[in-house]
Design a protein around this nucleic acid. Sequence first.
DNA 1: GTTATCCGGACTGTCTCAGTCCTGATTGGG
DNA 2: CCCAATCAGGACTGAGACAGTCCGGATAAC
Lengths: 152, 152
Amino acid sequence: MLRLSKLTDYAVVVLVRLSGMDGVQTSPGIAAATGIPEPTVAKVLKSLAAGDLVASQRGARGGYRLNRDLSAIPIADVIAAIDGPIALTACVEGSGAGCESQGLCPMRGRWDPVNEAIRKALSGITLADMQVALLPAFRLPAHQAQLQSAAE
Amino acid sequence: MLRLSKLTDYAVVVLVRLSGMDGVQTSPGIAAATGIPEPTVAKVLKSLAAGDLVASQRGARGGYRLNRDLSAIPIADVIAAIDGPIALTACVEGSGAGCESQGLCPMRGRWDPVNEAIRKALSGITLADMQVALLPAFRLPAHQAQLQSAAE
DNA sequence: GTTATCCGGACTGTCTCAGTCCTGATTGGG
DNA sequence: CCCAATCAGGACTGAGACAGTCCGGATAAC
């Protein structure tokens, strides 16, 4: 199903939220604004900080802020920060020696071109692209349910 | 991590194996040729048959054969047959009404362009593309271990 | 010095998935 | 006409990953 983790979904929400503000923001504040549980927000922000997508300021009056503009953050970077490197199968470069049936398995890194294609596709879409289509929903909170039922 | 199931990996191996033969092949036969456990091969073939990628013949002397040429099978079709429709998150068209926090969640189907990009990328790669790079491994069964250690 | 915040890790319940098995339906051969 | 071989479809189980939570420590403002 090509499922990506729910944490990645949260990460996008958090990053978009961060982009709207000037100074630093605390994780409780973001949690309250987004409706995501506070510990989960903290966890996501830690991963994002490890991936250099956000900068952290410790101590009182501390918090997080964006490191780059949304248009400079491809969705691939977010996925890599939260879920680790993008790889469809276990049989990729990272764990080349891990496959137990090396002799029999005729695939030997055959998914690499597929991985490459996906990586390329994900690198071409930035958070700014995802945000533009998201704005109308903010403007019509009362009509969301209506729009939804119409789309079904 | 964008993990796709191991079954999909097996499916590609099985389909490539099927392409090399003229008549029908039984699942035990394919299992023996590929090294994949027989029940697993049967399971994969059933899913592939449900997806119209292979045709099945029941009864004695029955088996499976390819429905189309490898070059006419995009990898996206294989994934869809094994893992279901391609969708990164749960919040897509399929389960539009399932998201519990519809009011708060500002993403509302925001991943659709990303899904579309990936679907497009996966539709552009056929099994034939994956096979060409795979042939050398078939020709040098005795040298595989050697090539491998050299690559590490 | 006290308080608020981030940091890093460990821990647990839940859920999905890989893999197996069983019972029935279909077809060809003896 | 009966039997063997094969596919069809589902149920079942053990393992692994993930979401979510919590705790002790470090850092910086007041």
